[in-house]
Design a protein around this nucleic acid. Structure first.
Length: 431
DNA sequence: GACCCTTTGAAGACC
DNA sequence: GGTCTTCAAAGGGTC
């Protein structure tokens, strides 16, 4: 993490996100525990993490896992396996049940043995912690065409070929070559940008996403941001419409206003730069899919979220730093861009859910949606949470340690929804 | 075909 | 300033 790395690339970080620091501040003693755990041995750490996941998934049926999770959620002395949750307080409160698909994946031998198996999971940590020595012999992947003769000691071998390029002392040369080959004007070789990727020995490696900025198909096609002075193609740029252009004849039939609107509609959307977790997901998703034979992104993201919390500060710091560079580069490429530009481009039902929550309680399904609960969760009663509107037990078997044991409340006495696991901030755990 | 789900983090909106 | 909302990725699932 840049802020914590006094000697690292965090110095002079004008774009450092304050949340990054807060995230670690929140962890507090957890991080100390984490450090101790990591020093105690990765095998134990991994085994406990795996165990905690199994317990969480099995906690729905039994109570032991629930109590275990509850102990971890108390935020106080985390001891033994309980400490393995390693989730932020808000996340720890989120005693979710893994989706069936995820449970299946976890129970599947190939997943159980792969996800948190030392040989795989810690292999990633190892790669992140201990830079691979230079030389092709250490490289598990085929040598890329742009492979440099010697690999910088700080590089991460499993990353894409261009990662190596950008880890090289002359990171901007290959894009120049590429653009020259493609006949694309690339005013990218600004001192500032090159400085981003002229990684020092202490700087972090480049992940495929960042690297992919320069290998994206749009780059190869020479597309860019119309009107933008830089006109630098970027994977963040996506056409707002996938439809093909109109034929000239059809176009002639369009009125000027229509064509203008059409132009506006076809204006490529500049996407938000990826944050640290997104970069982490992008890199690790394929591994999780391969290890767990899962395809459902929701389940995969749950796993990745847990893995993210299981990462050490140093490991997370690499992604925070990369995300900071992403934002920096994004800002340079699109100076006038704002996240507001993409607001409202996605219709989200969450907004509708919120509106529903303030008016009609609606059906139990809507009520579940109001509290952000899993729509697929059946109503039953292990947590004894009572829906304030329907006065029926909420069956959140995925929240086995829910302490909201309030009985059915009279409608008039329940103007406020009860604290519920769905409300991350108010969920209290049984101690 | 649009949206949901699910995760974390960044940033804008809102009070 | 604190809280809430939206969007970034991903792809199977749902409507």
């Amino acid at each position: 993490m840049p802020q914590l790395d006094s000697g690292g690339a965090g110095g002079g970080d004008d774009l450092g996100a304050p949340d990054e620091l807060l995230a670690f501040q929140d962890e507090g003693e957890e991080q100390d525990d984490k450090s101790r755990d990591s020093t105690a041995g990765p095998e134990r750490d991994l085994a406990e993490l795996k165990s905690s996941l199994v317990n969480e998934s099995e906690g729905a049926a039994g109570g032991a896992g629930a109590r275990e999770a509850g102990g971890a959620a108390s935020g106080e002395a985390e001891v033994g396996p309980e400490a393995l949750g390693r989730e932020h307080s808000s996340q720890r409160l989120f005693g979710d049940k893994l989706p069936e698909s995820l449970e299946d994946g976890l129970k599947a031998p190939e997943c159980a043995s792969g996800m948190y198996k030392e040989t795989v999971y810690s292999a990633f940590n190892l790669l992140m912690h201990y830079p691979a020595p230079s030389g092709a012999g250490q490289h598990p992947q085929p040598q890329p065409p742009l492979h440099k003769a010697s690999q910088p000691p700080h590089s991460v071998p499993q990353l894409s070929p261009l990662y190596e390029h950008f880890s090289s002392p002359h990171p901007t040369q290959a894009p120049v070559d590429i653009s020259q080959k493609q006949g694309v004007h690339r005013p990218l070789q600004t001192p500032d940008l090159s400085s981003f990727y002229s990684l020092t020995s202490g700087s972090m490696g480049q992940l495929p996403h960042t690297v992919s900025w320069f290998t994206h198909p749009s780059l190869m096609l020479g597309s860019g941001v119309p009107g933008h002075p830089a006109a630098i193609p970027h994977p963040a740029i996506v056409p707002s419409s996938g439809k093909q252009d109109l034929q000239p004849y059809d176009r002639s039939l369009k009125t000027q206003a229509e064509s203008k609107a059409e132009k506006e509609a076809k204006k490529p959307t500049i996407k938000k730069p990826l944050n640290a977790f997104m970069l982490y997901m992008k890199e690790m998703r394929a591994k999780v899919i391969a290890e767990c034979t899962l395809k459902e992104s929701a389940a995969i993201n749950q796993i990745l979220g847990r893995r993210w919390h299981a990462l050490s500060r140093e490991e997370q710091a690499k992604y925070y730093e990369l995300a900071r560079k992403e934002r920096q580069l994004h800002m340079q490429l699109y100076p006038g861009w704002s996240a507001r530009d993409n607001y409202g481009k996605k219709k989200r039902r969450s907004r509708e859910k919120h509106q529903e929550s303030t008016t009609d309680p609606g059906s139990p399904k809507k009520c579940r949606a109001r509290f952000g609960l899993n729509q697929q969760t059946d109503w039953c009663g292990p947590c004894r949470w009572v829906c304030p509107h329907h006065h029926s037990p909420c069956a959140l078997s995925c929240f086995p340690d829910c302490t909201c044991s309030a009985g059915p409340a009279a409608p008039s006495s329940a103007p406020q929804p009860l604290a519920h696991p769905g409300d991350r901030g108010t969920y209290a755990l049984r101690t």
